[in-house]
């Protein structure tokens, strides 16, 4: 079947089939919608948490001097390149019965997937935010202080100046989270319910599974959804951050 698929049909044919499938088959439609919901909820939760942690860390590291600062920056940069399967494995150890989070029974749950995506996205959000806030001219921070700003006011002025870079950081974190396969496969288990709705199956893990099973029209449709999501997010960023001074 796979051979036939590759030889006989073009990408446009698969796309057409995928659209027809989505329109005509309620079962597949529910399956796909539940996968999108799981993907979005897990990735957005992870990125919100990553931003809440990463942005203050970036501001602190960027604007204070302390022993070991270069080591911290090196660790953040290293974290940006962490292999996702290794993260998945470590998170699986952590949430398994013998792990430090074993009592929470998180194995093969969305919460475990959020943890693994949080670990993957936080260094990205932190590292890119750090680059953005440290690129803000010292003179602007001096101006905020000289105008009577407190440390918080100066930090907020810096965030405002670096907003385009920070949005990029959050987007990069979201991109890292939503397009990630290895760790969510390990800690989530790629599970669906008997009625076909997703428990821990995400767009990426579903694409991987559907492609392996030869259901290319579904895989293609899911891939299209994934790309469309990224386009929508980029569009929102352009719309919200598009005002230039």
């Amino acid at each position: 079947m796979i051979e036939t698929a590759f030889v006989g049909l073009s990408g446009a044919d698969y796309l057409f089939d995928a659209i027809v499938l989505f329109a005509d088959l309620p079962f597949e439609r529910g399956y796909i919608e539940s996968i999108i919901r799981v993907s979005l909820s897990v990735s957005l939760t992870a990125v919100v948490l990553s931003t809440l942690v990463g942005l203050p860390v970036a501001l602190t590291v960027g604007f204070t001097e302390f022993p070991g600062k270069r080591l911290v920056v090196a660790l953040i940069n290293t974290g940006m390149g962490l292999p996702s399967v290794v993260v998945g494995l470590l998170v699986l150890f952590a949430v398994s019965n013998q792990g430090p989070l074993g009592s929470l029974n998180l194995v093969f749950t969305r919460e475990a997937m959020v943890i693994s995506q949080f670990v993957l996205a936080t260094p990205v959000v932190t590292g890119v935010s750090l680059a953005a806030v440290t690129s803000v001219d010292d003179g602007l921070r001096d101006a905020a202080y000289a105008m009577g700003g407190t440390r918080l006011d100066v930090a907020l002025a810096t965030i405002s100046e670096a907003r385009a870079g920070i949005v990029t950081a959050v987007l990069a974190g979201l991109g890292r989270a939503i397009s990630e396969v290895g760790s969510v496969l390990i800690v989530g288990g790629n599970i669906v319910r008997a009625d076909g709705s997703s428990v821990t199956r995400t767009l990426t893990t579903a694409i991987q599974l559907e492609a392996r099973q030869g259901r290319f029209e579904i895989a293609l449709l899911l891939g299209g959804v994934l790309v469309a999501l990224v386009l929508v997010i980029n569009g929102l960023v352009l719309r919200l951050g598009g005002r230039r001074y």
Binding site: A146, S160, Y245
Partner: peptide, 18 residues
């Protein structure tokens, strides 16, 4: 007391705003 002082620098150091 600091807020009784205004300062202008050699560079304008304006924020990216109106």
């Amino acid at each position: 007391e600091r807020r009784q002082i205004g300062m202008v620098f050699q560079s304008p150091n304006l924020f990216s705003a109106s």
